[in-house]
Amino acid sequence: MRRSLSTVAAALALAAGTVIGTSSEASAATAPGCSDAHQIGNTAYITTSSGETAASVKQYYGCNKNFGYVYVWQSFRDTHSSWRIFTWINTTPGTYLGLMSTTGIEVWSNGTATAQMCTRAGGLIEFGSYSFQAYTDTRC
């Protein structure tokens, strides 16, 4: 399933941005095209099998849409030379709405018209032959 996610995402346009780097998580910039988006629910953390925190996953709501957001931590970037991150909105297991990916340090999903549904944001990081993911809590 993770490979199919990579294949789907590779066909999408890449989204990248910049965030001031720190050794912990950073505050997200603004959702593309929606300056009033605000975080809903808890932040999730993508951790590797060694327990290292690689990235944060957040869900945002604004402009009557939900957005997923992933930010790669500076401490991970300091010890890894390349990765690919993905984010999406999930309404049921196996759905990847608004899926976007990048090799940058942050990525926003496309906004999804899911305001009247229960949703969670998903995030995945791939590096080398490894991939790890996390989900925010579900918000209704």
Score class of each variant (00 low, 15 high):
67 F>S: 03
83 W>D: 14
31 A>C: 11
49 S>D: 11
52 E>I: 15
73 W>D: 01
78 D>E: 10
18 T>S: 04
71 Y>M: 09
80 H>E: 11
49 S>E: 14
68 G>D: 06
35 S>W: 06
54 A>R: 11
23 S>L: 05
78 D>F: 14
18 T>M: 00
48 T>H: 09
48 T>A: 10
35 S>T: 09
56 S>A: 14
51 G>Y: 15
81 S>V: 15
66 N>S: 12
26 A>E: 06
83 W>V: 10
17 G>R: 00
31 A>P: 07
39 Q>L: 12
24 S>D: 03
29 A>W: 04
85 I>H: 12
52 E>F: 10
81 S>K: 15
29 A>N: 07
30 T>L: 04
75 S>C: 13
29 A>Y: 04
32 P>G: 07
50 S>N: 12
55 A>G: 13
11 A>H: 00
73 W>I: 04
83 W>G: 13
87 T>H: 13
27 S>R: 06
58 K>I: 10
30 T>R: 07
81 S>Q: 15
60 Y>R: 01
68 G>S: 09
40 I>E: 05
81 S>M: 12
40 I>A: 06
58 K>F: 05
32 P>K: 07
60 Y>A: 01
40 I>L: 05
23 S>T: 06
51 G>F: 08
54 A>V: 11
73 W>S: 02
49 S>P: 14
72 V>C: 03
18 T>F: 01
34 C>I: 14
78 D>V: 08
61 Y>M: 00
87 T>A: 12
60 Y>G: 01
48 T>F: 15
39 Q>T: 11
85 I>G: 08
22 T>H: 02
19 V>M: 02
45 Y>W: 13
32 P>L: 05
34 C>V: 13
67 F>Q: 03
82 S>M: 08
82 S>T: 11
86 F>V: 10
24 S>I: 03
70 V>K: 00
34 C>N: 08
18 T>C: 02
20 I>A: 02
72 V>A: 06
54 A>N: 09
50 S>W: 10
12 L>A: 02
50 S>C: 10
22 T>E: 00
24 S>W: 02
36 D>S: 15
80 H>P: 15
11 A>R: 02
22 T>D: 00
20 I>P: 03
69 Y>M: 09
24 S>P: 00
71 Y>I: 07
42 N>L: 14
59 Q>L: 13
87 T>S: 13
29 A>K: 04
50 S>I: 12
22 T>F: 01
41 G>F: 09
74 Q>F: 07
